[in-house]
Nucleic acid binder design. Structure first.
Length: 553
RNA sequence: UGUUGAAUGGUGCAAUGGUCAGCAUACCAGACUUUGAUUCUGGUGACAUUGGUUCGAGUCCAGUUUCAACAACCA
């Protein structure tokens, strides 16, 4: 129980609250607005909220903040639920702010009765102007002097649909001179004659965020309402409502949202990428959306580990994308089945192997103590990777070159005897000889080679399409870069290799399986696969110190 | 020239007045390797700044500087 690991500031608060008896158990909530797909930034919030309640024996509600009918849709509700589940969390209750519309209306009435809210006929522009600026106080208008009775009547009329959109709003009566702009008589209700995804047409007035979120927390008896930094200035308002209404005192705490290098995280920008065709869909594997990452082959374990590693604090941050990639590799290394796939084939004829075919047993995963084995067909005609051969090798190159020897993974050591070229001087084929005593697992040749290559037998190979992804943006800090963020879209974020040559068992690849194409990276089956064509996504590449070395010279 | 919040290696997170300021990742070097992967070893590298309190300050106090958020009938 007594972990040495230090606590983050929220854990400290919670442990304090539990120790002092402020609460017997905690209740948190994850409150998405169903107007878009969840992304990796939400994953941080999900892991935090669900993680805290799990750690301290509490519960977490999933509550949809659905107070703006014009942007919200059931489609998003479904995707959000799927993503949270996939990440491995279970909510105690599935709830909706719209469930509380009647209660919220009554709370608003109570504020009016206390003389703390009034109906304002001003236009949006007028209200904005009357608010002043952060350095200049605002001023009340004549509508703020309406009687309680009149306000009650007008608010009811608003509800009854007697006014058009924008004709009237309900505002709290707080302090037009406050340093905090959110306390300058904030809007509570606005009129929207719009169809709501759950309440249909029963309402034409909808509460604003500030008059829905905190009250929903309170109704549910949320103990710790955890949100991002930009809500700090809302907290005095959050507390004001609780005090004035005398409802359950939920408390709001703020942490810094996740930012990641080479990535944008705002729903607006992500939506723009989809709508303008820079990516194909929300679940395009280049997107930071949870659905996209799932499709790309990221595991929930890896994402949870990532969220754990980045920690929780109150300072703005920009997390290296490479940390996410590290977490993914770390998990995939443990679970991925090893397979051999040649992307850019160079034919090798093993001249002394004649016309035999052998089935070689090769382990599925050397990282797994209980690894299973598969059989891979070996014959005299194989493909190797074109880049694994060089006619004039640079120093430190220990792959194949004329007169050189390498091991074929799981098979034999071969020696390059001859390079065959076409009339244009292109290398078309290598003629090699194999060392019969060097068979993998029973090598008595005594020969030690530095390089091991992956390969596939030409006549046994299956084919597939492979999609290679790179970061979506060329700029590390996209938000801070000058001008339109779309100027920094990486034109090479998707590279398609139409035909790769795979060892035959990949023909039966499964969706829930993860693969490491040896020396190539981690891959998974894409949903675009069909009977005619198998499609693989590269989740993430392997670390490649040779590529780094080669780049130096 | 308001209010609020935040300043620790490249990045992120710790150190709760007391040894050479840790951990992870990234980067560099080396070992091992039938994946130039994994694994292992070592290394470079930080308390924004000034003053004060104290035997002792990253931590407490004051000032300065920098960054961020805030004036949507969005959340």
């Amino acid at each position: 129980m007594s972990e040495e690991k230090s606590l983050n500031f929220l854990e400290e608060i919670i442990e304090d609250d539990l120790k002092n008896g402020k609460y017997k158990s905690i209740l948190t909530r994850f409150p998405p607005e169903p107007n878009g797909y969840l992304h990796i930034g939400h994953a941080k919030s999900i892991c935090l909220n669900f993680g805290l309640s799990k750690k301290y024996g509490g519960k977490t509600n999933l509550r949809f903040d659905d107070t703006n009918p014009v942007t919200e849709e059931t489609e998003y509700v479904d995707s959000i639920k799927e993503d949270v589940k996939w990440l491995g969390f279970e909510w105690a209750n599935e709830l909706y702010a719209s469930d509380y519309f009647e209660q919220l209306y009554n709370l608003a009435v109570r504020l009016i009765e206390k003389g703390l809210a009034y109906v304002d006929d001003s236009s949006a522009e007028e209200i904005a102007k009357q608010k002043g600026t952060p350095t200049q106080p605002g001023a009340r208008n004549e509508f703020s002097n309406r009687s309680i009775e009149e306000n009650l009547k007008l608010f009811l009329d608003m509800r009854l649909g007697k006014y058009r959109d924008g004709e009237k709003v309900l505002r709290a009566k707080i302090d037009m001179a406050s340093n905090n702009m959110h306390l300058r008589d904030p809007l509570l209700y606005r009129i929207k004659h719009a169809h709501h995804h759950r309440t249909g047409d029963t309402w034409c007035i909808y509460p604003m965020y500030d008059f829905a979120h905190g009250q929903s927390d309170s109704i549910e008896n949320i103990t710790h309402s955890i949100c991002t930094l930009e809500f700090i200035p809302h907290r005095p308002l959050y507390d004001w409502f609780i005090e004035q209404l005398g409802i359950f005192p939920s408390h709001q705490y703020e942490f810094a949202r996740l930012n990641m290098t080479y990535t944008v995280m705002s729903k607006r920008k992500l939506l723009q990428l989809v709508n303008e065709g820079h990516v194909k869909t929300w679940d395009d594997p280049r997107m930071p959306a949870i659905a996209a990452m799932r499709r790309r082959g990221y595991t929930a374990e890896a994402i949870r580990e990532f969220c754990d590693k980045i920690g929780v604090a109150k300072r703005e941050n920009l997390i290296d994308l490479s940390l996410l990639e590290f977490c993914v590799r770390e998990h995939l290394n443990k679970i991925a089945l090893r397979r051999m796939v040649v992307f850019d084939p160079l034919k090798v004829v093993i001249t002394n192997y004649t016309d035999m075919t052998e089935l070689l047993k090769i382990e599925d995963n050397p990282e797994d103590e209980n690894t299973t084995y598969r059989e891979v067909a070996f014959s005299s005609g194989i493909y190797i990777e074109r880049e694994d051969f060089m006619e004039i090798p640079p120093k430190k190159f220990f792959r194949l070159f004329p007169g050189g020897m390498v091991r074929l993974k799981g098979a034999y050591i071969i020696k390059c005897d001859e390079v065959v070229k076409d009339d244009a001087g292109n290398i078309t084929e290598l003629r090699c000889s194999y060392i019969p005593e060097s068979k993998s697992g029973s090598d008595t040749s005594g020969i030690h080679v530095k390089g091991t290559l992956h390969w596939v037998s030409v006549k046994h190979a299956a084919t597939a399409e492979v999609r290679l992804y790179d970061r979506l943006f060329t700029e590390e800090n996209v938000a801070d870069a000058e001008g339109d963020f779309k100027n920094y879209i990486n034109p090479h974020s998707l590279q398609i290799v139409e035909t790769v040559y795979m060892e035959p068992c990949l023909h039966e690849a499964k969706f829930d399986e993860r693969y490491q194409f040896i020396r190539k990276g981690y891959f998974c089956l894409d949903k675009d696969s069909s009977e005619e064509k198998i499609v693989f996504n590269r989740t993430v590449g392997l670390k490649d110190t040779w590529a780094k070395e080669a780049k130096k010279s």
